[in-house]
Structures are given as C-alpha cells and as structure tokens.
C-alpha cells in the first residue's frame, strides 16, 4: 500500500524521528505524537492506516489503554496497531504469546524495541497488505 499514512506514538523523540526516517525512506506518510492525548487527536484528524505504538510511555499502561480505546471505537476499529515493546523487560510478560487475544490486548502486531529498519519495514508492509 503506497503512501499509506502511519502515525508513530512514542514519548522518546529520538526513536520517533529515527522510525520516521526509516518509514519515509519507503515513501510512507509519517505523523508523530509524543503521548496518548496527542496520539488520539492525530488519529481523529488524520485517520492513519497504521498506528505504531510504544507500550511504555510516561505512564506505562498508556499504550495499552490507547490500543483498547482505539479498537473499541467503531470508527477506528479497523486501524492497524503495531506495538513496539521493551515491556517484557519490566513486567516479564511476553506479549507475543498473548497477541491475538482481542480481549486482552487488541493489537495486530508486536516488535521488540529497538527495531532494525528492515524488520520494521517488513512488518509494516505485511500489515498494510492485509488492508483491502
């Protein structure tokens, strides 16, 4: 899906901008947000195809809450969510094993942080190709 719109929500600006550079190299339109509030705002106004979400923002459950809110909203429930996580380090929970359980954490993909460009691009491509 060429020119897909991707929103990155992460409170680490260095990571946000690095991800942006990687995604822009493949001609995606990239928006960024530093927190949950800004993220929700940009989702409403820009309706991105994919949201790349960091689980561990300032309040550590922000990423979860946002993913849940998004998937509950009928307008955005088809927006893909790719979750970036280093969360296993702190919680010991392996999120990959629980992916796909829509009630627990409704996201479409997981990537470990830090993510190498080729892996990120491959995952993004895979997710967007599911969109009809």
């Amino acid at each position: 899906m060429e020119n897909a719109k991707i929103l990155i929500v992460d409170d680490d600006q260095d990571i946000t901008e690095a991800l942006q550079a990687i995604l822009e190299s493949e001609q995606y339109t990239v928006l960024t947000a530093a927190d949950r509030t800004e993220g929700m705002e940009k989702i409403r106004t820009n309706k991105p195809d994919l949201v790349i979400l960091d689980v561990m923002m300032s309040a550590w459950q922000d990423g979860f809450e946002m993913a849940r809110a998004l998937k509950k909203d009928p307008e955005f429930k088809d927006t893909f969510i790719l979750m970036l996580t280093a969360v296993k380090d702190r919680t010991g929970i392996d999120f990959k094993s629980t992916a796909g359980d829509p009630n627990w954490l409704p996201v479409d993909g997981f990537l470990d942080k830090p993510v190498e460009p080729e892996i990120l691009l491959a995952e993004v491509k895979k997710l967007l190709s599911k969109k009809t």
């Binding site: 260095d14 901008e17 990687i22 830090p114 460009p117």
Partner: peptide, 10 residues
C-alpha cells in the same frame, strides 16, 4: 541504547 541504535540504524 534503543534510541542510539535506532538513530545509528537510520
């Protein structure tokens, strides 16, 4: 480190 690695990767 994740931030450094991401920036260097770019």
């Amino acid at each position: 480190l994740a931030a450094i690695q991401s920036c260097l990767a770019v």
